[in-house]
């Protein structure tokens, strides 16, 4: 009984210390934000029901999207290669093939109408000071603008791959990968670095990456960080809430609100786990077996002690 009491005392002091240096101290050091479920409540909802056929005409025609964006599934290649595009716009405009399933529909609608507002970078792009966002606003194609925006969104949704077909890797590349490298999977801002046979080809590729990064750093103020270990250094909760609204944690950051929907956010997290914590399934599996083994060991140790000590008491 006395030993049990001592064990309780030791455990209580240990847990109090743990509580103070871990949960309590971290609650004092970091602001905590709860996820808003990727609802983007500050943005007005799409009021009209979109029509994909009309949307296609707008995207390819009056909307002028394809002046900057490629749409590979519709047979539209990007007008410029990534490095040239970054030199012109700061960052390579995304291919829109899967935009409809990665980005939230309401966010896309608002993005088309007013990019700087939807992206939460109005502190950086103030038209009054002549700071124009590289993506021009859509001022309407002559008809009901809300209807036209809804149509374009409907078109983008109609061409995008859905569900399982949209892999975590594809989601990451579209949502994050044009600004963030991830060298643990050879991802660069201009795509995956291939294996080269000739050193000259590799150097040429590296030069392209560096050129792209120069443009990007100039556009963003600094080169956005490599995300290889972000799942361990920031954790899933921080990444999710940060992506939802970067201004919460980093007031004035150049990082835009990405506008992914909840499903795509989960896929991005999964991809970050696949890259930064790839052994997590093995860890859980091995963990279970080791726990079973060590509990059996403890039982035998207990029995041995009882056997030895029965002569001593």
């Amino acid at each position: 009984m006395k030993e049990l009491f001592i064990l309780v005392v030791v455990t209580v002091f240990t847990l109090v210390t743990y509580y103070l240096v871990e949960p309590f101290a971290h609650s004092q050091m970091h602001k905590h934000y709860e996820s808003e479920g990727f609802a983007y409540a500050d943005l007005p909802a799409l009021t009209k029901k979109g029509d994909a056929t009309r949307g296609k005409d707008l995207v390819m025609g009056a909307g002028a999207c394809t002046g900057c964006h490629g749409i590979k599934v519709a047979g539209m290649p990007a007008p410029m290669d990534a490095v040239t595009a970054a030199a012109s716009y700061g960052v390579n405009p995304p291919d829109l093939s899967n935009a409809g399933s990665v980005y939230d529909a309401k966010f896309l609608g608002n993005l088309i109408k007013n990019p700087a507002h939807a992206l939460m970078v109005e502190h950086k792009f103030d038209p009054a000071k002549g700071q124009m966002h590289p993506m021009p606003q859509f001022y309407g194609a002559g008809g009901d603008m809300d209807q036209e925006v809804a149509d374009m969104v409907a078109y983008l949704q109609s061409i995008a791959v859905k569900g399982e077909e949209l892999t975590p890797k594809m989601t990451f590349e579209l949502a994050c990968g044009r600004c963030h490298a991830m060298h643990y999977e050879k991802w660069t801002q201009i795509g995956e670095k291939p294996a080269f046979k000739k050193k000259q080809d590799e150097l040429a590729f590296d030069t392209q990456v560096l050129d792209y990064q120069d443009s990007l750093a100039k556009y963003m103020g600094t080169l956005p960080p490599d995300l290889s270990m972000y799942i361990r250094s920031r954790g899933a909760h921080y990444i999710e809430t940060f992506v939802e609204n970067p201004q919460n944690y980093l007031k004035g950051t150049a990082m835009p609100r990405v506008g992914v929907n909840a499903e795509a956010a989960e896929k991005v997290i999964e991809h970050l786990e696949d890259v930064g914590d790839s052994k997590r399934h093995e860890r859980e599996e091995v963990g279970k077996n080791v726990m079973i083994y060590i509990i059996i060991f403890a039982i035998f140790a207990l029995l041995w002690k009882k056997e030895v000590w029965k002569d001593l008491h």
């Binding site: 859980e284 963990g287 080791v290 060590i294 060991f297 403890a298 140790a301 002690k305 030895v308």
Partner: peptide, 24 residues
């Protein structure tokens, strides 16, 4: 074996705690 058997009993319980931390 007397002292060692008691030590090992404590070590057994300790290792449960230790490996729980390692994996989870």
């Amino acid at each position: 074996n007397d002292f060692m058997s008691k030590d090992m009993m404590v070590v057994g319980i300790y290792l449960i705690f230790f490996f729980y931390l390692v994996f989870f």
